[in-house]
Amino acid sequence: MADAPRLTPEQVRKVARLARLDLPDDQVARAAERLDAVLGYVERLAALDLDGVEPLTHVGGEVNRLDDDVPAATLPPEAVARLAPESFGPFIRVPKVIGDGGNA
């Protein structure tokens, strides 16, 4: 069984960036070590002969079911906005996203 390639600090930083998580420099090595341990373990799957096996994405035999298009009550916009950490009326407040608001 092939060993999992060890993750480089750069790869771990990239994964954290993709996951929208901060990873301070002093935590990169520990995070890499933990990820390597699990990835090393799951390499055992490489021992299986899985050629031509269709990935199993869903165990239910059920097929899509269409519901009738019936109007029903939904949560009022104000109630949804109230769940947000910062809101006013039916709106949610976020940092500026147009112009100089950053690269999100």
Partner: peptide, 13 residues
């Protein structure tokens, strides 16, 4: 000066 992405990242962390 925090961007929306800064907000995502710091809130999640």
């Amino acid at each position: 000066g925090d961007s929306l992405e800064d907000l995502y990242r710091r809130s999640r962390t």
